[in-house]
Design a protein around this nucleic acid. Structure first.
Length: 614
RNA sequence: GCCUCCGUAGCUCAGUGGAUAGAGCAACCGCCUUCUAAGCGGUAGGCCGCAGGUUCGAGCCCUGCCGGGGGCACCA
C-alpha cells in the first residue's frame, strides 16, 4: 500500500533528521504517522500532520520548522515523491509521480475480484448473530436494518481475512408465553377457517370463512392474541394440510367448559405449536433470503434446554459464587460485573429467565471456538447489554470478545403518520411484501446501507416505494452498466482491453482520468476502514462518489474512436483499461454490499418514467 | 430521576481533531445527430441545537443546558 510506503519514508526521515541533530526527540516517543487525502488537489496527493504531532516531543514551537527539517530528509528523487511542500501550520504535503496510479491500475486488473480483499488470514473466527426476530411474526421492514448491517459486516470481515459465520437465534423455548399465545391465535383462526365466528376483544364479530362443513358457532379470540393477517395465512395452510382433524379438541380448548382431557389438549397444542413455528421460521427465512441474506445456522433456543445447557450454566454460576437466593428466586450478582442491579436467573416459579438461556447460548458460542462474538441488537435492547456482558464475565469468559452492536431505531411513516405498534397491534410492514417485492432487493438493501446504524432513521414506506427510481442505487448500477456497455461496444468493433501495460496507462493524463484513478486507489483502504469501524455505509457512500467520478470521466473523456478520429488508438486502449479497472472496483464494491452489478440497464424514456406520473 | 443514542441545506443523511462543511432528493435554468439523458453543467439553499472549556486548530473531544428517540420486569 502506498500509504504504508510513504509512512515508512516519513519515519525514516525523522530518524535521519534526529541523527543529524536537526531534531531531537526523546527515545521513547511513540507517534502514529497519519497520511490523509488533502481536501484540495493543490495540496498534493497526500498530506501528513506529522510535524504538528511532533511539536511537543521536539520542544520546537513552530511546527513549520519541524516540517521543513523532515522534508529535507525525504527522498525526492522523482521515483515516487516529485516534491514536498510545507503548508498551513505545518502540514507536509507530498506530490507524487503519477506513475503510482498507473501501477495501481495494473494491480487492480491483475487482482480482479481479489482487489480490495486481504489474502492473509487473521485467524479470527467471528460469529455474527443478527435479526433473531421472535417467531411470532414476519420479518418486518424495521428488521431490514440489522439484516443489511449483519450481512455486509460479515462480507467486510471476510474480506479482511476473518472466518465469519452468520447466525439467527430462534426464541422458541417452551416457557415463551408469547409463543403460546401466538399458537392459540392460530388455533382460533383455524376454527374460523372451518366456519366458526370470532368474537374480537373490541366486541366485533368476525364471521367464519365460507366452508362446506356444517361447523357453526362463536368462539372468543384469545386475550392479547396476534391480529396480523399472516396468522390467518398459517391457519389456511393448516386447513389445507389436515382439514378439520383437530377441530374437535381445539373447539373444546376454547369452550368455557371444556370436556377434553389434558392429554388431548397437550397433543393439540403440540401440533399447532410445531406447525406454527415451522411456518413462521420458513417465512422468515424466505424473507431474509429474498433480501440476500443467508445464515450458516438457525440456532434454536429450545435446543439449549434439551441439552441441559441452561441448567448447567446456572449451576456453573452458582458454583463460581455469583448467585444467591432471595424472595424464592435465584439471582445473578451481575452488579459485581458492572450492571446496575442484580438479575433474576430462576424465577420463584422455578422457570429460568431469558438471561439464563442467553448466558447458556453465549457459552455455547464460546465453546464452538469463536474468538469474536458480535451481537447486533436494536436500541430497545440497550438496557440488556450490561447483564449479558456480566453473565458472560461471571462464567469466566473474556468479555472483550463479545461485541454488542446497538442499532438505533427505525421508525416508519405511512400516509405521513408514524406507524407505531408492531406485531401486537397488527400493523406490521413486512420486509418482503411491503418493500422488497415493491422496489427489489437491490434498492431495499441500498436504502438500509446508506446510513450509519448509529443514527435513528425514518423510513417513509410510500416514498421508498414510489421513489424507487430516485434511489441512488440506480445511479451506481447505471455507472457500472455504462462501463460494461463501453467494453461491449469496443469488443463489437474488435477492440479488446489491452494486456496490462503501464506504457499505455501513461497516456491517462486528463484530470478526470487522474481523479478516477486516485479514487480506485483509495478503495482497499476504504474497505479496511469500513470493516474496522463496522461501517458498511462508508462503502455505500464511496460507491455513489465513485459513480459520480465515472460519469464525469464519461462526459469528458471519449473512449471509443469517433468519426473525427480525435481519439488516438493508443489512448482508446488506455481508456479501455481504465474503464476495465473501474468496472472491477465498482463490481467488487457492489458485491461486498450484496447488490447486483448489472451489465446493462435499459435507458428510461422520460415519457414513461415514474417521475412523469407525478 | 438514572442510562443511552441523536440534533449539520426545505427533506433524508455523510463528514479520520486539520485547509473553502458535502451528497442524494426536492426547487429553478440549460444540455440528447456523438461510447445508454436512470446522465451532465449551472443557480439557489447553512449562527453544524445553545453556552462555556481543552489547543496551533473543534461539526468532531470535555462540561452544562435545551429539544427529540429508546431503555430502565421474577416479559422476550
Amino acid at each position: 500500500m502506498i500509504t504504508e510506503q510513504l509512512a515508512g519514508l516519513l519515519s525514516a526521515a525523522v530518524t535521519s533528521a534526529c541523527q543529524s541533530g536537526e531534531l531531537s526527540i526523546p527515545a521513547d516517543t511513540t507517534y502514529d504517522i497519519k497520511l490523509e487525502t488533502p481536501p484540495d488537489k493543490q495540496f498534493g496527493d497526500f498530506s501528513s500532520n506529522l510535524a504538528l504531532v511532533l511539536k511537543k516531543a521536539t520542544g520546537i514551537k513552530d511546527s513549520r520548522v519541524i516540517a521543513e527539517a523532515i522534508c529535507r530528509y525525504l527522498p525526492t528523487d522523482q521515483k515516487l515523491i516529485m516534491r514536498t511542500e510545507v503548508a498551513g501550520p505545518g502540514f507536509i504535503n507530498l506530490f507524487l509521480n503519477p506513475e503510482w496510479l498507473y501501477n495501481c491500475l495494473q494491480t487492480i486488473r491483475e487482482r480482479d475480484t481479489a482487489y480490495g480483499i486481504l489474502d492473509t488470514s487473521t485467524g479470527e473466527r467471528v460469529l455474527i448473530e443478527f435479526v433473531s426476530a421472535n417467531p411470532t411474526g414476519p420479518i418486518s421492514v424495521v428488521n431490514g436494518r440489522a439484516a443489511a448491517l449483519g450481512d455486509v459486516l460479515g462480507n467486510l470481515l471476510t474480506s479482511q481475512g476473518c472466518e465469519v459465520a452468520r447466525e439467527f437465534y430462534i426464541n422458541d423455548a417452551l416457557n415463551s408465553l408469547q409463543l403460546n399465545v401466538f399458537s392459540r391465535t392460530v388455533q382460533a383462526r383455524y376454527l374460523q377457517q372451518l366456519g366458526y365466528a370470532l368474537l374480537m376483544p373490541d366486541g366485533r364479530l368476525e364471521p367464519g370463512a365460507v366452508s362446506n362443513s356444517s361447523a357453526s358457532g362463536t368462539i372468543s379470540f384469545p386475550e392479547k392474541g396476534y391480529p396480523g393477517e399472516y396468522v390467518t395465512d398459517i391457519a389456511k395452510a393448516i386447513v389445507q394440510d389436515i382439514g378439520d382433524t383437530y377441530a374437535k379438541p381445539t373447539l373444546q380448548i376454547f369452550s368455557p367448559t371444556p370436556t377434553v382431557t389434558q392429554a388431548e389438549v397437550d397433543e393439540t397444542d403440540a401440533y399447532f405449536r410445531k406447525v406454527t413455528l415451522g411456518q413462521m421460521i420458513q417465512a422468515q427465512r424466505n424473507a431474509l433470503e429474498a433480501f440476500g441474506v443467508q445464515y450458516d445456522c438457525w440456532f434454536m433456543e429450545s435446543s439449549l434446554y434439551e441439552a441441559g445447557s441452561v441448567e448447567a450454566t446456572i449451576k456453573t454460576l452458582s458454583e463460581r459464587g455469583y448467585t444467591y437466593t432471595k424472595d424464592g428466586a435465584l439471582w445473578l450478582k451481575s452488579t459485581e460485573f458492572g450492571d446496575t442491579e442484580d438479575r433474576v436467573l430462576v424465577r420463584s416459579n422455578e422457570k429460568a429467565t431469558y438471561i439464563a438461556a442467553d448466558a447458556a447460548y453465549h457459552v455455547n458460542k464460546y465453546q464452538r471456538g469463536f474468538t469474536k462474538l458480535i451481537d447486533i441488537l436494536g436500541a430497545d435492547h440497550h438496557g440488556y447489554v450490561a447483564r449479558l456482558q456480566a453473565s458472560v464475565a461471571a462464567l469466566g469468559y473474556d468479555r472483550t470478545q463479545l461485541e454488542i452492536v446497538i442499532t438505533q431505531m427505525v421508525s416508519l411513516l405511512r400516509d405521513g403518520e408514524a406507524v407505531i405498534g408492531g406485531k401486537r397491534k397488527g400493523i406490521v410492514l413486512e420486509l418482503k411484501e411491503d418493500l422488497i417485492d415493491e422496489i427489489g432487493k437491490d434498492a431495499a438493501r441500498f436504502y438500509f446501507l446508506l446510513n450509519s446504524y448509529e443514527t435513528p432513521t425514518t423510513v417513509d414506506v410510500e416514498l421508498a416505494r414510489r421513489q424507487s427510481n430516485e434511489n441512488p442505487v440506480y445511479y451506481v448500477q447505471y455507472a457500472h452498466a455504462r462501463l460494461c456497455n463501453i467494453l461491449r461496444k469496443a469488443s463489437e468493433v474488435g477492440i479488446l482491453p489491452p494486456v496490462n501495460n503501464v506504457d499505455y496507462y501513461k497516456l491517462l493524463t486528463h484530470p478526470r482520468e487522474l481523479d478516477l484513478l486516485r479514487r480506485l486507489a483509495d478503495y482497499p483502504g476504504e474497505v479496511t476502514l469500513a470493516a474496522q469501524r463496522y461501517a458498511p455505509h462508508r462503502l455505500t457512500r464511496f460507491a455513489i462518489d465513485l459513480a459520480g467520478l465515472l460519469n464525469l470521466f464519461y462526459e469528458n473523456c471519449r473512449v471509443l474512436p469517433t468519426r473525427d478520429g480525435d481519439v488516438s488508438q493508443e489512448l482508446t486502449l488506455a481508456r479501455i483499461a481504465l474503464v476495465d479497472g473501474a468496472r472491477i472496483v465498482l463490481r467488487n464494491l457492489l458485491t461486498l454490499l450484496g447488490i447486483s452489478a448489472p451489465d446493462r440497464m435499459d435507458r428510461l424514456d422520460s415519457n414513461t418514467a415514474p417521475a412523469a406520473e407525478r
